[in-house]
């Protein structure tokens, strides 16, 4: 049974598009990345999974339960971290955490205390006095303290300093190793590349690619950086060519032999050929009008 499964999930807000015929499948215990720019439909997908909005067509299931018909049972198993954490004003951190636990009819005092210590959060402060990053920590603890089977994280690291980001992903890795499924929505590709095993790319409401992160990152294209002089004008398959401080860098998707012949005619002082990172792949997907390369 999949942790998340959507079938032709479609959501329109009046006439404007949210998501279109989305077919997603996330296995239990995997860390799944969900990548796309703002407005692509990431939040709509998440809000449908959480029952905040109802699908116009199609369906979504979490652990085999329909997100509309079994909303409360689904939410009991889910921990959700919103991109922007907003709480009831005037309440202290510990009261918010207690309220969240009470709404789930669970005693999470020990877990909540331990997470506060790990994330260095003062439980006695009022939420209105907290910075954006500290409010995010409160939301993280609300999402984690009841030890959910599925974690849905929407832009989780916004506002967190690098040390806290590292601690956060450390906690996520621990949970994942204990069997928690993680659905990580982000536009920060390195975050997905470093933490997820599989990922889907969403564009204008549709999934345009869904595969393991390694496969997504693997294309015929190579990132080539070189220092020296070489004539690249006749070479086909070159993109993103820039020269900064004598170093020429480009993405090459053509014939490698042709590249090597061309390079051997030049005067190369230094060369570095590497796999492009996910960010470059991502731009690639978006430039090609949705067609996979």
């Amino acid at each position: 049974m999949e942790a998340i499964k959507t079938e032709n999930l479609t959501k329109y807000y009046g006439k404007s598009r949210g998501v279109l015929e989305l077919n997603l499948s996330v296995e239990q215990s995997e860390v799944f990345g969900f990548i796309g720019p703002n407005g692509a439909g990431k939040s709509t997908t998440i809000r449908t999974l959480l029952g905040l909005v109802s699908p116009t067509k199609g369906s979504a299931q979490i652990f085999g339960m329909d997100t509309v018909k079994n909303k409360e049972a689904v939410l009991q198993k889910v921990g959700y971290l919103p991109s922007e954490a907003i709480f009831y004003p005037g309440m202290k951190v510990k009261d918010i955490l207690k309220l969240s636990a009470d709404l789930r009819k669970k005693n999470c005092a020990a877990e909540s205390k331990s997470l506060c210590e790990r994330l260095q959060l003062d439980r006695n402060r009022k939420v209105d006095e907290l910075s954006f990053g500290n409010r995010k920590k409160v939301a993280i603890i609300c999402a984690l303290q009841h030890r959910p089977e599925l974690l849905i994280l929407d832009e989780p690291t916004g506002g967190l300093d690098p040390l806290m980001q590292r601690e956060f992903f450390e906690i996520i890795r621990e949970r994942s190793s204990q069997g928690t499924t993680v659905f990580l929505s982000s536009h920060i590709l390195s975050e997905v590349q470093h933490n997820c095993s599989r990922a889907a790319i969403i564009r204008e409401g549709r999934i345009i690619a869904c595969d393991s992160v390694d496969t997504l990152a693997k294309t015929n294209a190579k990132r080539v950086s070189l220092r020296g002089t070489v004539d690249l004008t006749d070479l086909t398959g070159i993109r993103d060519q820039v020269t900064v401080d004598g170093i020429t860098s480009f993405l090459f998707g053509g014939d490698i032999n042709q590249l090597l012949r061309q390079l051997s005619d030049g005067n190369i002082l230094d060369i570095h050929i590497s796999e492009p990172d996910l960010e470059e792949i991502f731009l690639h997907y978006y430039e090609k009008d949705g067609d996979r390369v």
């Binding site: 959480l50 029952g51 905040l52 909303k71 409360e72 049972a73 689904v74 939410l75 009991q76 889910v78 959700y80 919103p82 907003i86 709480f87 009831y88 969240s100 709404l103 789930r104 609300c142």
Partner: peptide, 8 residues
């Protein structure tokens, strides 16, 4: 968003 993402 806080309230309605709890199982109530």
């Amino acid at each position: 968003e806080f309230l309605l993402t709890h199982p109530v």
